[in-house]
Amino acid sequence: MKYLALVYYQESIINAMSEKEWQDLNQECIRCVEKLSGTGNFIIGQALHPVETATTLRVRNGETLISDGPFAETKEQLAGFYLLDARDLNDAIALASNIPPARLGSIELRPIRELPPKT
């Protein structure tokens, strides 16, 4: 079963970090990915640039509308994602609890929905 672990934190917390704290966090994330890869639980994952770099688009009446920033202002911002292969939700919770930013913000776990077969 696949779960998407969406990593959220307040970017203000990150901005307030010293350079060393930030580098340490990044190294910790690299080790986390290595560990998850080693156990076969890591499918793919990426860190994201801050939310100020986000662009939102939507298509209405065939027209593509572009706007700056995320769709909704939220207290915490999406900072990255992990696609995990886990036995079940408890397993996914156990894996995601090792993602370093879980200490700073929150991880949202979403089960992957398989699309129906092509008809």
């Binding site: 079963m1 079940d88 939700l89 408890n90 397993d91 776990l109 089960p111």
Partner: peptide, 14 residues
Amino acid sequence: RDARIPYEVPGASE
């Protein structure tokens, strides 16, 4: 069903 919450008794640590 969809998030696959397992049908199990938690282990000692949880």
